[in-house]
């Protein structure tokens, strides 16, 4: 009994891949989305003479950089099968904490640390409720969404914190060189970091495995709760980073800061091709989606179309990019 299973034949060779990288790229969501982005870019350049201006384009990036920072972490969280709707409220709480610190005379390094620490603490709170107590994240984070912003309201009421130190303004208003803002550099850097984390590391692989089947992942020896805990921490941390940038850009803190952003961040992630049911999606997709949303807002803005109307376009895009391929498939059948 030495040879078994192969029934006397030589083991058959299984190729690594069926399709080359080119074929996979052609069928990818990212390419479709990229085409949309290019089309919007071209349409905008024709529609407005002010569009193809380096400073204007640079300004436009502020429409999405802060949201995109959160969207990277949110993408991982959604791929793992969870969601965090409290991100905008975390921004509010971080900003409030930073503003309060300013009142006690904190300098820029302390403010930044407090912002990041508050974000981490909020993320940890969500993480404990979801991973330790086993509660559904969508409900938990609807709760903490009210709770975190609620604390900001208790602290600030209808008041505001101002008086941030002058050098604190750099995070939201500074430029690294020429038209390249600090925020944009940070966005690009984080995009690369999250790309590596999701697509090039063991951790990223575990995120996908958990999102496709958390039970089987756990039965494969993956510490599911630990991975999810880290993802909630990361999302909280990124909200803290976004809070620093946004607060610095605005120069003040009100409890209504970043109101409604959670849904815009989720929209960005879903538009980027991340399945809301978990298990699939990519960072390049989210990056392109960020640009699409930013370009739409900016382009329509140049045409004097107000932001709220642009949201129609974003909403149509969100549903359309999923609905059209399905409608097409139904039509052909």
């Amino acid at each position: 009994m030495t040879e078994t299973a192969s029934h006397g034949q030589a083991p058959r060779h299984i190729p690594d891949r069926l399709q080359g990288p080119g074929a996979r790229l052609l069928k990818s969501w990212e390419l479709l989305l990229f085409a949309v982005a290019v089309a919007i870019f071209v349409a905008n350049s024709f529609a407005s003479p002010y569009f193809l201006n380096a400073w204007n384009l640079s300004d436009a990036t502020f429409n999405f950089t802060e949201k995109a920072m959160i969207a990277f972490a949110m993408a991982l969280l959604i791929i793992s099968g969870e969601i965090d709707l409290s991100v905008a409220s975390i921004i509010a709480l971080c900003s409030t904490a930073m503003g309060a610190a300013v009142q006690y005379g904190a300098g820029t390094p302390e403010i930044v640390l407090i912002g990041l620490a508050t974000g981490l603490a909020c993320g940890a709170f969500n993480a404990v409720l979801v991973t330790k107590m086993g509660l559904p994240s969508i409900v938990v984070t609807i709760g903490t969404m009210s709770l975190f912003r609620g604390i900001s309201y208790i602290v600030l009421g209808d008041g505001a914190y101002r008086g941030y130190p002058a050098d604190f303004a750099y995070f939201g208003q500074g430029y690294v060189f020429w038209v390249i803002s600090f925020e944009f550099v940070l966005f690009a850097l984080l995009a690369v970091l999250y790309y590596i984390l999701l697509h090039r590391t063991n951790f990223g692989r575990m995120v996908y495995a958990i999102g496709n089947n958390a039970t089987a992942a756990s039965f494969s020896g993956i510490r599911v709760a630990r991975v999810k805990f880290i993802l909630f921490l990361l999302t909280g941390l990124m909200s803290g980073v976004a809070a620093i940038c946004l607060t610095s850009r605005l120069g003040s803190t009100r409890p209504s800061i970043a109101f409604g952003w959670e849904l815009e961040v989720v929209t960005m992630v879903v538009l980027g091709g991340v399945s809301i049911l978990g298990g699939s999606g990519s960072i390049p997709g989210v990056v392109i989606a960020a640009f699409v949303m930013g370009l739409v807002t900016f382009g329509l803005g140049l045409l004097n179309v107000p932001g709220i109307v642009m949201s129609i376009f974003i909403g149509l895009l969100l549903i359309g990019v999923i609905a059209l391929p399905r409608l097409w498939a139904m039509w052909r059948r």
Binding site: A5, P11, H13, I14, P15
Partner: peptide, 10 residues
């Protein structure tokens, strides 16, 4: 291959 898996590609 040791288990004689039948699949088109890995």
């Amino acid at each position: 291959e040791r288990l004689d898996l039948r699949a088109a590609a890995l």
